[in-house]
Nucleic acid binder design. Structure first.
Length: 149
DNA sequence: GCCAACGTTGGC
DNA sequence: GCCAACGTTGGC
């Protein structure tokens, strides 16, 4: 079963928001690299919920992918902040997936700890300058991170 | 708020 | 297909 990591600014959407909702749509991704990973997701895959651009950036919880990728409706909605004016309703290049809440960590695994963990050196997350917001996580990385909780 | 580093765009 | 310029990400 593949694993993933997805970033969100908690001011926009946090693990606590997902916990309250139970299920949500993960939309608004506007990077082709990230989108291409979303298209590889399968119903049931696990993912780490990463909080970015906040006081304590790091892994804040765990979720489960609850669908395969489908066209992101926010891309064609003029009222959405994620509206992409280049879409014309016929060609929507962007994808969304549904996600389920699994677990909120009692404390965030902060970025410096992730960077210091030898098992995670390959992750784009800890590489300097990397901005990838959706990335695969290997089985070894998944278990190493779970052990850091 | 700053700014390094990046991914994307678009002129050529 | 190159690559400079641009806008964005995201840690600090």
């Amino acid at each position: 079963m593949p694993y993933w990591l997805m970033k969100s600014e908690p001011d926009e959407f946090s693990i606590q928001d997902l916990e309250r909702l139970g299920r949500s749509r993960w939309d608004g991704v506007r990077s082709y690299q990230a989108r291409n990973f979303m298209r590889q997701m399968a119903d049931g895959d696990g993912f780490f919920f990463y909080h970015s651009s906040c006081a304590t950036p790091g892994i804040a919880g765990i979720g489960r992918i609850a669908s395969t990728a489908y066209p992101d409706p926010t891309a064609t909605d003029p009222d959405s902040p994620y509206f992409d004016p280049r879409t014309n309703g016929v060609t929507n290049p962007w994808s969304a997936v549904d996600v389920d809440f699994v677990e909120s960590l009692r404390s965030v695994i902060a970025l410096p700890r992730l960077k210091a963990e030898p098992a995670l050196v390959q992750m784009p997350l800890v590489q300097k300058g990397s901005r990838l917001s959706v990335m695969p996580v290997s089985e070894d990385e998944w278990h190493a991170i779970l052990a850091m909780r």
